[in-house]
Design a protein around this nucleic acid. Structure first.
Lengths: 212, 212
DNA sequence: ATTCTTGCAAAGCGTTTGCATTGTT
DNA sequence: AACAATGCAAACGCTTTGCAAGAAT
């Protein structure tokens, strides 16, 4: 574990965050901090927010990841999502939990809705996690789908012993470079590909299993 | 209001979405749809998901927008967010709402947490919305901050009668082009700048007010 | 015939990262 | 002296958009 240093920038970032009663986005905080440290860069703010929240000094509010998800069912209902593979399911709550707050609690808002989201390990991830505490294990049920292009990319990676760049992968798989990065993303999400170095990718153990 | 056409692509997208019990991201759905329509493009999927959810035929699950937000308070607590200006506040719930589901309800998940998020109009937006049903009105309390750079950009826009590209803005404001796009984004978020055409920006009525 | 939709490629936007330099410990 | 942190610019990854061609009404 790295030792944290209290730099001036970090101090100001913490200070400003502490002052704000609302929860700022990185950019909002950046605008504030810049008034005190005009030369600070946005990257520093991002980095510090990550570092500080990893250290437990602040908290990241991140609901459902950042991908939009879509649902056939248009009636409002609640969800449960997996903190590992990010799958999202519906849940039904027996008693309709209060959809409105008491006036004393609503902070002056005019409430229009309430979302309740449980989080945890989905049935598939639950198994793999409890079995081996494995944070990098594949998640069988969640990762079954493997498109043709993904298979091509995975095969290309399986052939090379060293991490490959996306151009090499494109050449080896016969796909367009544009398409490759898209597949890489999907495969990383599934845990079949890792990126030991920036822009270099290699197949994981799980990836090999998935191919066979 | 435009009339929707039921194209083959749209039909398949709906069909596949309907089949899925989980809530797919655009990309996941795209992978599925591509098996039936190999020539479909990801953009079409994105477009249709937006169109269909705007039409109320499907539902977009989008919690707290996509920006990460940060919080000084590390203890878990619940939030209320404005559906108009996206500000986020803490709320305290008198009775701790059930943090765990009955086994019958948990869909096989191992629950680790529960987030409750109320949504509605914040005190400031509440006023403007009820006063004029105005969907484009500025939101005084939420939009107060105006950084130096933002002011420069806004002034530059105020001088030109026609929508300007970011290069023109950079020239007129004396800022780096890189910095301009960043400010534009912030200003758009605040409702001070609109983009009538792609890559062209103009100051809004609210923007003018904010300057004065 | 009109106008909505598509596929493609390119751009947008928030976020992250490589790298040389600076600053803390 | 060792190495964490910074500023900068470039890259990422998901999403949106301009455009010309195609399809639905």
């Amino acid at each position: 574990m790295k030792k944290l240093r209290m730099t001036h920038q970090r101090e100001i970032i913490l200070q400003e965050l502490k002052k704000m009663s609302r929860h700022p986005s990185a950019d909002e905080l950046y605008e504030r901090v810049k008034k005190k440290l005009p030369r600070i860069s946005l990257a520093t703010v991002y980095r510090n927010l990550e570092i500080l929240s990893a250290a437990g000094m602040i908290r990241k509010i991140e609901i459902s990841g950042r991908l939009k998800r879509f649902d056939w069912e248009t009636e409002p209902h609640n969800h449960i999502s997996c903190i590992r593979c990010h799958r999202v399911d519906n849940i039904e709550l027996k008693r309709r939990l209060t959809r409105t707050l008491k006036p004393a609690d609503n902070r002056g808002y005019k409430i229009s809705g309430c979302r309740i989201e449980f989080t945890g390990y989905c049935p598939a991830c639950r198994v793999t996690v409890t079995k081996k505490g494995g944070k990098k294990m594949g998640c069988k049920k969640c990762n079954t789908g493997l498109s043709d292009k993904q298979t091509l990319v995975l095969k290309a990676l399986a052939k090379s012993k060293d991490p490959s760049g996306s151009k090499d992968i494109a050449a080896a798989s016969g796909l367009e470079p544009k398409q490759v990065s898209c597949q890489i993303t999907a495969l990383k999400k599934k845990g079949f590909v890792s990126s030991p170095v920036r822009c270099k990718y290699e197949i994981t153990q799980e990836g090999k299993k998935a191919l066979s």
